[in-house]
């Protein structure tokens, strides 16, 4: 579904990604792991069309989308739920969800909101409230809900568990599993290595802008190098 080949990207003259290869298959959960500054968010933002790649190629659904705009990527169904949520604080919860379907028009909107409410019942109690007044956990739900409103084919979740209480982190991972169960392809970008590997089919480890490790999730869990760098074992 998603094929990234020899991708190079960065900001200005600073190159962050030095040739990344990564695939996400239809209906897969792929975990992208790596420490701060490894280039995970740069990769996401390149996929979402926020920054233009400096080299390499990106294909989605068999189509070349290298250097496509963010509008085009949303149209194709590549939807990112960004780190830090990036919800619209000055808009109500309902308006945030409505704008999630900005590129989809109004037809499927009511059904989409119903679906989001089914996943996050707590949001429906907050519909008229400004999004900026929500708690961190609720904001994360809203960010994912807004992403779902865009009818994603590939959902990119960037650090969805960041800043959540341990209980909510559990909830978040079981939610991701549920979304996957509905057939959604997911690229999960996390620092929470072992919980991510538990739900992922395959995983990549990004280090200094290069893929350092990759393979089926159950094999990576056993990897000595990974244990060393992330658990100090």
């Amino acid at each position: 579904m998603l094929e990234i080949r020899a991708l190079e990207a960065g900001y200005g003259s600073v190159r962050v990604l030095h040739g990344v290869d990564l695939d996400v298959g239809e209906g897969e959960i792929v975990a992208l792991l790596g420490s701060n500054g490894a280039g995970k968010s740069t990769l996401n933002n390149t996929l979402s069309g926020i920054i233009r790649p400096l080299g390499g190629a990106i294909r989605f659904d068999g189509r070349d989308v290298t250097g496509a705009t963010s509008v085009k990527m949303v149209d194709l169904g590549v939807i990112q739920v960004p780190e830090g949520r990036r919800i619209f604080p000055n808009l109500t919860v309902r308006e945030n969800l409505e704008l999630g379907s900005y590129r989809r028009g109004r037809e499927g909107r009511a059904a989409g909101i119903e679906r989001v409410v089914a996943v996050f019942p707590r949001l429906s109690e907050r519909f008229g409230q400004f999004a900026g007044t929500l708690s961190g956990g609720e904001q994360q739900m809203l960010a994912i809900g807004r992403g779902l409103m865009a009818q994603p084919k590939l959902l990119i979740l960037d650090e969805p568990s960041l800043g959540l209480s341990p209980l909510l982190v559990e909830e978040m991972f079981s939610l991701i599993r549920d979304l996957h169960g509905e057939g959604l392809s997911i690229l999960l970008v996390e620092q929470n290595v072992f919980q991510s590997l538990e739900i992922a089919d395959r995983a990549y480890v990004l280090e200094n802008g290069l893929i350092a490790l990759q393979g089926p999730a159950e094999e990576l869990v056993e990897d000595e190098g990974l244990k060393k760098s992330y658990l100090g074992m």
Binding site: G49, I50, S70, V71, V74, D75, R86, F88, A150
Partner: peptide, 16 residues
């Protein structure tokens, strides 16, 4: 209104 406060978020929902 969304662009006024959150440009990056706006880009991610496909707002030009």
């Amino acid at each position: 209104r969304a662009v006024a406060k959150e440009r990056q978020g706006a880009r991610l929902v496909g707002i030009n």
